[in-house]
Design a protein around this nucleic acid. Structure first.
Length: 163
DNA sequence: GCCAACGTTGGC
DNA sequence: GCCAACGTTGGC
């Protein structure tokens, strides 16, 4: 069994929120529509069942990590790429020769305390995250340390943090 | 709504 | 293979 790894995915909540994921059957959805090669490679090659996934809301108020999920199916071809009615069709990708990949993720818990981007930037153990220094990457790795810090803060109540 | 930063495309 | 132009992401 490979070491569990950790990731962060972004979504604009007006497009697809963590609450939307929680409302899915089995709290599970395909993470489809990603059209960036670095993110594609991560999903196709690196994400494994059981890995932890932080869920970040971008273009939001506030921008924040709002919950966490787990990978329940590793990388497989993103069939929305050859669906002309999908949000992000790409005619270069075909069932015989797929270009884009996705994973399935399952919502685990909504944070009691969302961890804002401002807080990530101002926290010494978190401010090296790709979230801060590579703002364009929509699927990105998270270190075990960063995962632990964010989970601990996120699952605590405001009162516990303020003490 | 603005625009900086970045990824991608395409001409050469 | 370089790099300018373009489109998109995403913070502010």
């Amino acid at each position: 069994m490979a070491q569990r790894r950790y990731w962060l995915v972004k979504s604009e909540p007006s497009d697809y929120s963590f609450q939307d994921l929680m409302a899915e059957p089995d709290q599970t959805a395909e993470w489809d529509g990603v059209r960036n090669y670095a993110a594609r490679n991560t999903m196709r090659d690196d994400m494994q069942v059981g890995d932890g996934v932080l869920f970040y809301h971008s273009n939001s108020k506030p921008n924040a990590v709002v919950g966490y999920a787990t990978v329940v199916r590793p990388g497989y071809p993103d069939d929305t790429a050859w669906d002309p009615d999908s949000a992000h069709p790409d005619p270069r990708s075909t069932p015989e020769s797929p270009v884009w990949y996705m994973v399935d993720i399952k919502a685990e818990a909504l944070f009691r305390t969302p961890i804002s981007l401002a807080q990530v930037k101002s926290t010494p153990t978190l401010n090296k995250m790709a979230l801060v220094n590579n703002s364009r990457l929509s699927v990105q790795p998270v270190s075990a340390k960063e995962w632990k810090v964010i989970l601990t803060l996120g699952m605590a109540s405001q009162e516990e943090i303020l003490v």
